[in-house]
Simulated scan of single mutants.
Amino acid sequence: MDTFEILLMLTAGIGMGFSLMGMSTAIVFSPILISIYGSKLGNGIMFIPFLIADLYVSYLYRKNYDKKIVLKLIPFSVVGMIIASIFATYISEYIFRKIIAIIIILASILFFLKKYEDKLTKLSWVFGIFGGASSYLANVSGPIFNIYLLSYKQNKEDFIGTRAIFFTVINIIKLFMYIFIFKNINSFTISRGVVAIPTIFLGVFLAKKLLKIINQKTFNTIIVFLGLIVAIKMLL
């Protein structure tokens, strides 16, 4: 591993930390990693630090999560991951990312139209299946799940806690799928992923400081707009 890769992973770690707190900063580091290592290896490199950091954030917010939402969403997400694993060789990642982008944009519009915001909570199967599939194939599920969770009108702490617990469970399941099916967890991806772990904690720390000075309405708006930026980036 050369100096460039080390600096890249350390920088990506900070972005991952912010991403774990609900801010979709993956738009910055994910495309860079995938452009350098390819989609399969890029996802594998990001996975281990994400899993470890998810466990950490879950511990921090262990008293701030909604168990019913997590249990409601997980089965559909697992179905989405299974579908993705079966059709991974047949699905064009290019087309898939366009579909996910359109879903994020439509959901974001409905979220801002307060008349429909509450109705998004009834679409757990849509968000779960497409979110699970996008998590397995491209690690771009954050904006999809963010909009779904925000539709429950949780406060910032409960949103982060529910999100962290949910992703921890999903990533533990995905770990076995990545090892035995997708086969992108190996010495190469692990050796690069672990470099990002220290700066992930820095990113989480900085994000926590930032969230303390942001009110709830601003927080919700930032989360959805960041998701929209991700979606537009995926469409272009």
Rank of each mutant, 00 (worst) to 15 (best):
I147E: 02
G142E: 09
I102Q: 06
A88C: 07
L110W: 08
K98N: 13
Y90G: 11
L123Y: 01
Y136V: 09
A101L: 00
I99N: 03
I103F: 04
F130C: 05
G128D: 02
L120G: 02
G132H: 08
K115I: 09
N139W: 14
Y148G: 03
E93V: 09
I91P: 00
F96G: 00
I147Y: 03
K114V: 05
D118Y: 10
V126Q: 06
L110V: 09
L120A: 00
Y148D: 07
S151P: 08
S92H: 10
I103L: 01
I102L: 11
F111K: 11
I102R: 03
I86N: 01
Y148I: 06
I102M: 08
I100F: 01
K114N: 09
L149N: 12
I147S: 02
F87Y: 11
E117F: 08
G132L: 01
L120P: 02
F145G: 08
I86V: 06
A138S: 14
S134C: 13
K119S: 15
I102Y: 02
S85H: 15
K119N: 13
N139C: 13
I105N: 02
S141Y: 11
A101D: 00
V126Y: 07
S85W: 08
Y136W: 09
S92T: 09
I86H: 01
W125K: 10
S124N: 15
S135K: 06
L123T: 05
E93R: 10
N146H: 12
I144A: 01
K114Y: 07
N139Q: 14
Y116L: 11
Y116M: 12
G131N: 06
S124Y: 08
T89A: 09
D118G: 03
W125Y: 15
S92L: 11
G142D: 13
W125T: 12
F112T: 13
K114P: 14
G128N: 00
W125Q: 03
S134W: 11
I109E: 00
Y94T: 12
G132W: 04
L120W: 04
K122W: 07
P143C: 06
K98T: 05
S92R: 07
S108D: 07
F96Q: 01
S108Q: 00
L123R: 03
T121E: 15
A107T: 05
K115D: 06
S141K: 13
I99G: 00
L113N: 15
G128Y: 04
I144E: 00
F112C: 04
P143T: 04
F145A: 10
Y90N: 12
A88G: 09
S135H: 03
G131T: 02
L137C: 02
L149P: 06
T121I: 12
A101Q: 00
I99R: 11
